[in-house]
């Protein structure tokens, strides 16, 4: 459904996307996971024909984004990172506008609009101005609108950014329900590890490059067992001793980290054999965060984006002064 070959996008001297290649099968939920600025949004913008690739090729629903952007546009639904609703119109009017520019026959539109509004549980608010919606409701309306014209692929750029935890969970329920009922292909970007777990397959992207691509389960397996983190009163000595036990420890930020297939047994063994005093210990099944750390040596920190998120959620709620002193309501 999506085929990407050596896709590149440069902005001046800066290479935001450095020749990524991947394929997404029909009906798949495919996630692009990576920290802010990794090239996720740039890639999505090229796939939805809002940005011309500097090199490489991408085909969406069988159409080339370079040669036939209009056919691509007809086959996709998009929910951008920042809201693209007209908040001076009602929910229904926003949908009607969409139906007009996507040329959905009026009768079909009425049925379909009711159906998508029902899916995201907004039927009761359809005649209210979007201005009065919460952040989560706006997102849901955008998803409903993105589905209105029966797209083959639904693109979601950071769909849950700026939403509170409950809305996030609810939104995922909608996305999965929609994907199953409509047999639609979903392509999404996120920097939330927990969300990537919902995807069928994930591409981990860092500095404009894909560093790994697989199912969440297999990516986690690739870490090589359970993840153990220790602190001791002499990390250097402890590191040397762990090396002797062939545990391949890494010392980062005052923490010793290693992976072991049988975590619990290994930890018990380490407790017996280590000469430095163990101050604390953590043992967990590998998460996608661990996969990312293993691949890049860095953490994707959710709180990295927290300031921007707060700003966004406030902007969605409306009525604050945005960057540059612009009125955002």
């Amino acid at each position: 459904m999506i085929e990407v070959e050596q896709l590149v996008r440069r902005f001046g001297d800066f290479e935001a996307v450095r020749g990524v290649s991947f394929e997404v099968a029909e009906g798949e939920i495919f996630g692009f996971l990576g920290p802010n600025g990794a090239g996720k949004t740039t890639t999505i913008n090229m796939l939805v024909t809002m940005l011309r690739p500097s090199a490489g090729e991408a085909r969406v629903a069988g159409f080339s984004v370079r040669e036939d952007p209009r056919s691509v546009r007809e086959s996709i639904g998009i929910v951008f990172q920042d809201t693209t609703l007209d908040d001076a119109l009602t929910g229904w009017e926003n949908l009607r506008f969409h139906a007009d520019v996507y040329d959905i026959p009026t009768k079909l539109f009425r049925e379909r609009a009711k159906e998508v509004l029902q899916t995201v549980e907004l039927e009761g608010r359809r005649d209210d101005l979007v201005r009065t919606y919460s952040g989560g409701m706006k997102r849901r309306l955008e998803i409903a609108r993105g589905l209105l014209h029966y797209p083959k692929v639904l693109f979601l750029d950071e769909p849950t950014l700026g939403l509170d935890p409950q809305s996030r969970v609810a939104l995922w329920d909608y996305i999965r329900e929609i994907q199953q009922r409509e047999k639609i292909t979903v392509f999404l970007t996120t920097h939330y590890m927990a969300e990537a777990e919902y995807c069928g397959r994930i591409a981990i992207i860092d500095n404009g490059d894909i560093v790994a691509l697989d199912t969440p389960a297999r990516l986690k397996e690739s870490v090589g067992g359970d993840v153990v983190t220790l602190t001791t009163n002499d990390n250097l000595q402890a590191g040397l001793e762990l090396e002797e036990l062939r545990l391949r420890p890494r010392i980062e930020d005052g923490l010793i980290r290693f992976e072991a297939p049988e975590g619990a047994t290994t930890v018990a063994n380490v407790f017996r054999q280590l000469t430095p005093k163990i101050v604390s210990v953590d043992l967990h099944k590998p998460s996608l965060e661990d996969v990312f750390i293993k691949l890049t040596g860095r953490e994707i920190r959710d709180d990295e984006a927290s300031e921007a998120d707060k700003m966004r959620s406030q902007m969605r709620a409306g009525g604050i002064i945005g960057p540059g002193g612009r009125r955002m309501s």
Binding site: I78, F80, L85
Partner: peptide, 11 residues
């Protein structure tokens, strides 16, 4: 306010 993207990305 973002709405222009909805318009510009339409076919």
């Amino acid at each position: 306010f973002g709405f222009l993207r909805e318009v510009l990305v339409a076919p």
